[in-house]
Design a protein around this nucleic acid. Sequence first.
DNA 1: GCTAAATATTCCTTGACACGTATATGCTCC
DNA 2: GGAGCATATACGTGTCAAGGAATATTTAGC
Lengths: 124, 124
Amino acid sequence: MRTVESVFEIIAEPNRRAILSLLVLSQQSVGEIERQLRMPQPTVSKHLRVLREAGFVESTVDAQRRLYRLKPEPFQEVDAWLAQFRRFWSAHVDALERHLDRMDRATPTKSKTGRKTTRRKPRT
Amino acid sequence: MRTVESVFEIIAEPNRRAILSLLVLSQQSVGEIERQLRMPQPTVSKHLRVLREAGFVESTVDAQRRLYRLKPEPFQEVDAWLAQFRRFWSAHVDALERHLDRMDRATPTKSKTGRKTTRRKPRT
DNA sequence: GCTAAATATTCCTTGACACGTATATGCTCC
DNA sequence: GGAGCATATACGTGTCAAGGAATATTTAGC
């Protein structure tokens, strides 16, 4: 049937990301998705099919409706890929903070640049 | 020039993900990427251009070479999108754990199923 | 200035995929 | 079992991006 697609190709499509963001709130029927996202029904069904085959969602039958809800595994896969870069980017945040701290010490009590962001928040 | 592409479209391309994974180790010249990933040089240059315009990498000139290194911001953007699903999927992991714990209590000292994974690890 | 090395860009072709329209399938209720 | 609603699928079309081959650009060293 379909090409074997990576989770990254699945979430590259904006409408699919919109559907996922909607389903994270609660399960929804096709018609509810259709109305809330203002998409044609075939478009919704086709994207749901792609999402289902990729394991992002599953559905249960409720009379004529089908209720779709998220499944966690593919998200964890994305997270796992992202993990390899986390050390890198938090190191960068730290370096930036040290740099800004140094600038503070260099220009004491001046607040010349008028920076607005609060620093030294606990790291995520 | 190029279409404004989302970070998700950028990382949807497997060769680009390979380049990013390589650059997380250390900065590399185009030729080094070319050799390690066995890609034609124009392919590498074209992907690097896309990555650069999307803010994933930056380059500095070193004689005839250009050294490419990662920039953190787009990764944080992906992470921010993923964050909305984190509560959901960790809730699922918890539910699974509770379920398995209940099964343990239901079949005491039997170890019938022979599960191998260690549970109750601290959540990520 | 010429040559060679490293990198970037251009042109062309091809394939994938998202969309719209139309139609098919499935379920419920009378 | 027929009507009507909800959802799925089929088909045709246009767009866009990735890849290959050829070429342009930049820099170093002589």
